[in-house]
């Protein structure tokens, strides 16, 4: 038990020391609790279009934005997301919708992307395209810029958390760690966190890290420091009692 506690302490300490949580991007706070645009999406060449609401009404959704011809962040982003999600075994429901924001992508391209990632059989992953990407981007505050010199979009990896009512509960820009991903899973399941900590670079002794998977706060070194005065004084008490024992015996004689 004690070993477990010390390990947790060390682990959470190392997370902080090595700057695990990347600094929060201010854009992530935009459009929170706005309704996502209910775009029609196409899942396969044979099926008819469905609305995005049909998807998220069923299950809370993580919406990842990519384009198939991307030579930059898109593939590592999806690989990492898949890897991290597999590691997180939590109580929260989710599905991942990978949507192309490139109008030139078609459903077939998206399907081959899913095959490349070995996700074509997964029930939790959906690959889709939409013809209303401008309206969808607008509702998310997402703005990829086409760079004709490189033939690429200048964009950041965007993951949007959407709950079953279609509200944007959280946004993450860039490839992020499992802690923030778990926070996102909690938020799309409407788990309420009364507070969260902003990342700090040179702050050693914080008290807690919130673990959204369990809904509990992991103790950090700071907590030990809060307990320290009580522990030290009790220790002192026992020590003094121990060293005064001989004299006490004399008194009673």
């Amino acid at each position: 038990m004690l070993r477990h506690f010390i390990c947790t302490l060390f682990f959470s300490w190392s997370l902080i020391v090595f700057g695990y949580g990347a600094p929060a991007n201010l854009d992530e706070e935009q459009n929170i609790y706005a309704q996502i645009y209910n775009a029609p999406i196409k899942l396969s060449p044979t099926q008819a279009q469905v609305s995005l609401a049909d998807i998220y009404n069923r299950k809370p959704m993580l919406l990842a934005f990519v384009f198939t011809r991307c030579t930059g962040v898109c593939s590592p982003f999806l690989l990492q997301l898949n890897e991290t999600l597999r590691q997180i075994s939590g109580k929260y429901l989710y599905q991942v919708v990978v949507l192309s924001f490139d109008p030139r992508d078609d459903v077939e391209a998206m399907q081959s992307l899913s095959t490349r990632l070995h996700l074509e059989k997964s029930t939790q992953w959906i690959f889709a395209t939409t013809d209303s990407i401008t309206a969808l981007n607008l509702s998310l505050g997402f703005d990829p810029i086409w760079d004709s010199s490189t033939n690429q979009f200048d964009h950041e990896a965007l993951l949007v958390g959407v709950n079953t009512q279609g509200y944007i509960t959280k946004k993450l820009l860039g490839i992020r760690g499992d802690l923030e991903l778990r926070q996102m899973l909690a938020s799309i399941n409407n788990a309420y966190i009364p507070s969260y900590r902003l990342p700090a670079d040179n702050d050693l002794f914080s008290c807690f890290t919130y673990d959204p998977t369990t809904g509990k706060n992991i103790p950090n070194l700071g907590l030990l420091i809060i307990a320290l005065p009580a522990l030290v004084s009790f220790l002192l008490l026992v020590c003094i009692a121990f060293f005064s024992r001989n004299k006490a015996a004399k008194w009673t004689e």
């Binding site: 966190i193 507070s195 969260y196 902003l198």
Partner: peptide, 9 residues
């Protein structure tokens, strides 16, 4: 309370 380094909801 408004505490530096934290966001209270």
């Amino acid at each position: 309370q408004a505490m530096p380094g934290y966001i209270n909801r």
